[in-house]
Design a binder for these strands. Structure first.
Lengths: 266, 266
DNA sequence: TTGCTCCTCACGTCACGTGAGGTGGC
DNA sequence: TTGCTCCTCACGTCACGTGAGGTGGC
């Protein structure tokens, strides 16, 4: 093995896309020492170490600790490496599912904000809404004229039990229009806008209104929607859905939260 | 907001699955300070901060730096958050592709090792092999009686140009049987066992032999395969494929590398 | 007194990245 | 002399995790 056929740290880094300082670190911890040292004490790698390093970096990028990789590598046998790889394929599937879940969470939030930005906030409008999945929480129990902190805490508490993933946006649900009109800030239940949820908001024509203000503040929106419905001879059916298009996540000012209220029309 | 409706750090950690020490750290860097401090200086969180924290942890788990999250969060507007999320959805797709690529690399290595473990190393056998994708490198140029270090370095050098991902297992390719028989350790080309490659090893009947030893050491395997073919009146067609089932990655001893040689039978 | 929950501060850790200061051959 | 590649050593960084030692109310 003459020196011409060995790789300098620069070439080795270029072939593998791994930083030189990372290579020195791998040398330091004994994970991948160069095959030899040339004149000037330069590190020399054999071309085939490209294969080893590439394998190491695939595992490392997947989050396998270097100590684990070193353990296997120090005492590598086909059986041992096979076991690691089998475990990793399993792990990879878990990672894939996690990313897909994160993707759907981000998509749902993005969708909420986008609907908010496109909304004509002042107007009450009739809209054709598509089917929408969600998961309902247990029935809320408002004692006296309590705010919704307690019911919300209960909703969080029961989340695991109800298979609710609290990372999706959360909305309010009223059994029917009269319930909403009577106590607009006290939803019968909370729901999670989980696209894999097994409750469905039907596709169809909805009367939709918006309101700026903190969670539960609807000002005169219930009345404006009712007036609109009476003027246009509309009859409501089914539950009332409240979504918080702008909330904690997307606005710093509480007065600027944007709620959407939707109820289906017969 | 009386203290009963505020969450202790313990409850907050339980609702969100985030460690208490992480919460203290988020407080310290100003990313998510508790709404207030109770008696004893205890941290008190409002229930709705569950939403904020969940959002933070989704982003953080995707690798968004806390400093970036804090920047957006400090001055959050629907437009700003929308922009971040749009960027993140793009990023997520890149992550997905990366994981899928890693998955196929790991699967391919696993497959190589598994074939090696199941192989009857002593025997020359006729096997029905499935179609197999790969990517061919440029033609090798062996000067004099040079070892394959130089050609291999050239293969690595040209990898990007040839769209070869060096993270997949690498094998040797001979244009035909005579070339292999004449110089078994000097393949015409190297190839990468990339399942998305656009070269294909045909499905069909192959004569397959194995040999223990370092890269390029085939001992009497060529002769044994030839003898077997003559005895059984087999005629070879097409190229010879050499795979390294056990290599740098799966064995520490060079003498224990396991090569597989396969050539199609008419 | 014991248990429990919380507090702060300091230090450790993982996998590097970033200089600072120096070498050695063209 | 200048440029280039490499070296070592020290220190920084990111996002926490882990104690150690202390408080405060039942």
């Amino acid at each position: 093995m003459d020196e011409q056929t060995l790789l300098s740290i620069k070439e080795f880094a270029e072939f593998t896309g791994v930083n030189q300082s990372t290579l020195r670190y791998y040398d330091e911890i004994g994970l991948l020492p160069p095959t030899s040292r040339g004149k000037n004490n330069y590190r020399c790698y054999t071309p085939f170490q490209v294969i080893t390093l590439n394998f190491i970096s695939v595992l490392s990028e997947l989050g396998v600790p270097l100590a684990t990789i070193k353990d296997i590598s120090d005492n590598r046998t086909p059986e041992g490496v096979l076991e690691l790889l089998t475990k990793q394929e399993f792990e990879l599937n878990a990672q894939l599912r996690k990313i897909q879940k994160a993707s759907s969470i981000i998509h749902t939030f993005r969708d909420h904000i986008q609907v908010g930005l496109l909304a004509n906030e002042e107007a009450i409008t009739i809209q054709e809404l598509p089917e929408d999945n969600f998961i309902l929480g247990d029935e809320n129990d408002f004692k006296d004229d309590e705010k919704f902190y307690q019911p919300f805490i209960k909703f969080c508490n029961d989340a695991t039990k109800n298979r609710i993933n609290l990372k999706f946006p959360i909305g309010g649900y009223h059994d029917n229009w009269d319930h909403f009109f009577g106590s607009p800030s006290k939803p019968s239940r909370f729901f999670s806008s989980d696209p894999y949820g097994n409750n469905k908001r039907q596709a169809g024509r909805y009367l939709v209104g918006y309101n700026r203000g903190y969670y539960g503040e609807f000002d005169d929106l219930p009345k404006r929607m009712k007036d609109y419905a009476e003027k246009n001879k509309l009859v409501f059916k089914g539950p009332v859905y409240k979504k918080f298009l702008f909330d904690e996540v997307s606005t710093s000012e509480k007065d600027n939260y944007l709620s959407q209220v939707a109820v289906q029309i017969k």
